[in-house]
């Protein structure tokens, strides 16, 4: 599968796809998209890169084992739910929002961070599974 075309293309595709996945993640609150889809697209980007350049390169690119993304994402999601409890004495998972929307992203609130957590966990899960399997295949 290591063709020149694919390898060259994937070098450009990876950043584009990653950007796209973040775009999908951020717009999810207003238009189709969100953490799940974003995370899946990001992991597909990495899988594609692995097909083209080999698993070693991809792992080098990732720097850390994707398994660590899972606790990270879970922590972000959990903390975004915990914030209202700790900071404002509201029930767990109460949505909190900044008063003024920020350009491009729109309103910023705890739900956004929750979605980012989901994005990271999904990426961690998919990459862990795929990498583990291809390594031991």
């Amino acid at each position: 599968m290591k063709t020149i075309i694919l390898r060259t293309a994937s070098n450009y595709l990876l950043p584009i796809l990653l950007l796209f996945s973040i775009f999908i993640l951020l717009r999810g609150h207003y238009l189709p998209g969100g953490g799940f889809v974003g995370g899946l697209i990001a992991s597909i980007a990495f899988v594609l890169h692995a097909f083209a350049n080999g698993l070693k390169d991809t792992k080098k690119l990732l720097k850390i084992h994707p398994g660590f993304l899972m606790p990270l994402g879970l922590a972000i999601a959990f903390l975004s739910g915990l914030l209202p409890v700790l900071g404002f004495g509201e029930p767990f998972m109460t949505g909190l929002w900044l008063e003024y929307p920020i350009p491009v992203i729109g309103a910023i609130g705890t739900a956004l961070f929750f979605d980012i957590g989901v994005y990271i966990v999904v990426q961690g899960v998919v990459l862990t599974i795929i990498i583990t399997i291809s390594e031991s295949a």
């Binding site: 999810g28 609150h29 207003y30 238009l31 189709p32 998209g33 969100g34 953490g35 799940f36 899972m70 606790p71 994402g73 879970l74 999601a77 959990f78 739910g81 767990f92 998972m93 949505g95 929002w97 309103a107 609130g109 739900a111 929750f114 979605d115 957590g117 989901v118 966990v121 999904v122 961690g124 899960v125």
Partner: peptide
């Protein structure tokens, strides 16, 4: 209530956020 316009996503990350929390834990 949730400042979102994609209702499906709002349900996932806000109204039923705890469910999603558990779900991503299961995935992990």
């Amino acid at each position: 209530l949730a400042h979102g316009k994609n209702v499906v996503n709002v349900i996932l990350v806000d109204f039923r956020g705890t469910d999603t929390m558990v779900e991503i834990s299961v995935l992990a």
